[in-house]
């Protein structure tokens, strides 16, 4: 069994990821291997109890694959994920189920994430039933409590509603409630607000942040939106082509970005300043790299304005520490 109580406190990391690779094989006719997608390609990190972190990167950089691997939905091709010191790969069926209760999952599309033929009561009861909460009144009590917690009311009315009767924001609150109902120690939120109206994004992000601090949860945000990250995460990991290229505490990274890719991401942010209207921005050209045939050396080098021929296109950069607490995988800081 996984017991988080034994490792309370911040000294022991809750989640450790060690040289994680998640590859998908492309097959033709159902059996002939024609290629491999290197979705996650060598990620190592450690998350402490109660920490809120964000993974940032453009579409197809492998951040969702990383999230699913952490959730145990994908089997890692290489490397391992350790939760409370125990490797996920070594868990038996019952332990894996217990792990699933400890990790909540908030998805991107709230409507798709809710079964359309079940009402809210049933949707929230399902995880409890799966995890053996057989007492009906106990289930009802926990469902009501969690709905109160996500501020979805009036509870009596909401319980009997079907997903299509709720607004996008309300749906996402139900999704969050479902992730919380098993009382997890960690929440993985994969772009939790990208499909919501701008007006409710902040509410949902504030809600997640509040619940995270109240419950002392470890919160993993997956997002492509650097502009909101500062308020909801303590640490940022920037991902590019299946790898973490830069990581640092949030203020440090946003104020002193080191990696050329992070610089490019930040310069692409929209900034509501009238002076910007006529100013052209320097955004590196090119497309996100192919994950089937990733570029040699540093994966960013074909798009990097500061690429050094003979080095960046040949050797993979190792992790450097240009500033205290700031890790960047770029030969510039050799």
């Amino acid at each position: 069994m996984i017991d988080s109580a034994t490792s309370a406190g911040r000294r022991v990391p809750l989640l450790e990821v060690d040289d994680l690779h998640t590859w998908f094989e492309l097959r033709q006719w159902g059996f002939r291997r024609v290629g491999t997608v290197h979705a996650v390609d060598g990620v190592s990190l450690a998350l402490a109890h109660g920490e809120a972190v964000a993974f940032v990167g453009e579409s197809g950089c492998g951040k969702s694959s990383l999230a699913r691997t952490l959730l145990g939905l994908h089997r890692p091709t290489q490397g391992e994920v350790r939760f409370d010191g125990q490797a996920l790969a070594g868990l038996g069926k019952a332990d894996m189920k217990a792990y699933r209760a400890k990790v909540g999952y908030v998805q991107q599309d709230p409507f798709g994430a809710l079964p359309p033929f079940l009402d809210v009561r049933r949707i929230l009861a399902e995880p409890l039933i799966v995890h053996g909460v057989t007492d009906r009144t106990e289930r009802e009590r926990r469902i009501r409590a969690v709905l109160e917690e996500v501020r979805l009311g009036p509870v009596d009315e909401v319980l009997g509603k079907f997903p299509h009767m709720l607004s996008g924001g309300q749906q996402q609150r139900v999704v969050i409630a479902r992730a919380l109902v098993l009382e997890p120690v960690m929440i993985i939120a994969d772009e939790p607000v990208s499909m919501l109206d701008a007006s409710v994004r902040v509410e949902i992000l504030d809600l997640l942040r509040r619940i995270q601090s109240e419950r002392e949860l470890t919160l993993v945000f997956i997002t492509h939106d650097l502009s909101t990250v500062r308020h909801y995460a303590e640490r940022i990991f920037v991902m590019y082509a299946g790898r973490v290229v830069e990581s640092a505490p949030v203020d440090e990274l946003l104020d002193h970005p080191q990696h050329p890719y992070t610089l490019a991401l930040l310069s692409a942010l929209s900034d509501p300043d009238a002076d910007n209207a006529l100013r052209l921005r320097e955004v590196p050209g090119g497309e996100p790299p192919s994950l089937i045939h990733p570029p040699s050396g540093c994966r960013f080098h074909p798009r990097c304005p500061q690429a050094m021929a003979g080095l960046c296109d040949r050797d993979e950069p190792i992790e450097f520490t240009p500033r205290p607490g700031h890790v960047s995988a770029c030969w510039l800081y050799q």
């Binding site: 939905l73 699933r100 209760a101 998805q107 399902e126 995880p127």
Partner: peptide, 26 residues
């Protein structure tokens, strides 16, 4: 491929439950 099936896997629903309770009723 619906996200709610993935969510069900993430909270630990068994294969049988997913097939019989989440896919077929749909």
């Amino acid at each position: 491929e619906a996200p709610y099936i993935e969510a069900a896997r993430a909270y630990g629903a068994s294969d049988m439950r997913i097939v019989l309770r989440y896919m077929i009723p749909r």
